[in-house]
Amino acid sequence: MDFILYLINGLSLGSVYAIIALGYTMVYGIAKMLNFAHGDVIMVGAYTAYFLLVSYGVNFYLSILITMLVCALLGIIVERLAYKPLRSASSLSVLITAIGVSYLLQNSAQLFWGTSSKMFPTSFTNGSFSFSDVNIPYLTILTIIVCIIITVVLQWFVNNTKTGSAMRACAEDKGAALLMGINVNNTISITFAIGSALAAVASILLCSAYPSISPTLGSMPGIKAFTAAVFGGIGSIPGAFIGGLLLGIIEILSKAYISTQLSDAVVFSILILVLLIKPTGILGKKTIEKV
């Protein structure tokens, strides 16, 4: 019975990773950049939700919506100010800029909100139900369901809507997309907005499970989600979903059965092994280099 409980916990943690990884993967697909500041958007989302819920006493569902809007706006602003001028620059320059943005967000948060950690209110997502003799919190199930809904909707959106087609076109070839009358700038902004809004959802789910919030809260989930996105094959939406879930399950199972302290070592070793067998991730496209 323990195993099932671990598995469900793993799925829940993996769902959070998957939601963040979806944002990573979408931004990567269209902008071909590793957005290292993505983890810090989670942190901003967590603080926004915290202040809405605790200081202003806003309704829980309304505050989720506002947090998503705030993060989406942040994503758009960051893209316009920092990444847009570098669209034709080398990928390393963009990477360094993303690191700069990450430092900026972290240190601004430290300046405004202090370094001491705050407790995120968990009363909204409390409660659990029993299934035979396993006690499962509602939050765990909620997280998994939210993740599945987001993945399905996102996959439908990208494949079946006009904006989705525009995104795929921009991901393929920005110049050609421009010639077809697609507003490339707006499409990239929308992608960043969606990715950041997903980070906001992830932040609320994450902080409801692990309620201590601090300015560096986003960095570790950020790294894990980045890993998950690569694990599943970066640029692929189902890949990010599978990668995130697998990473979460491996992490919880290795904590339970191998060693709590060494779980990071186990997770990343498995990642390297998987990449040895599938060099472009589980669902990644294999690109053949031609002369």
Binding site: Y28, L34, I223, F226, T227, V230, I234, Q261, L262, S263, D264, A265, F268, S269, L271, I272, L275, L276, P279, T280, G281, G284
Partner: peptide, 21 residues
């Protein structure tokens, strides 16, 4: 065996493994 970002993630993973060990 790897290229580009997949290679980057292996080096990242290596750093995490060393830190953890």
């Amino acid at each position: 065996k790897l290229q580009g970002d997949y290679l980057a993630i292996v080096t990242l993973a290596f750093g995490q493994i060393v830190k953890s060990l």
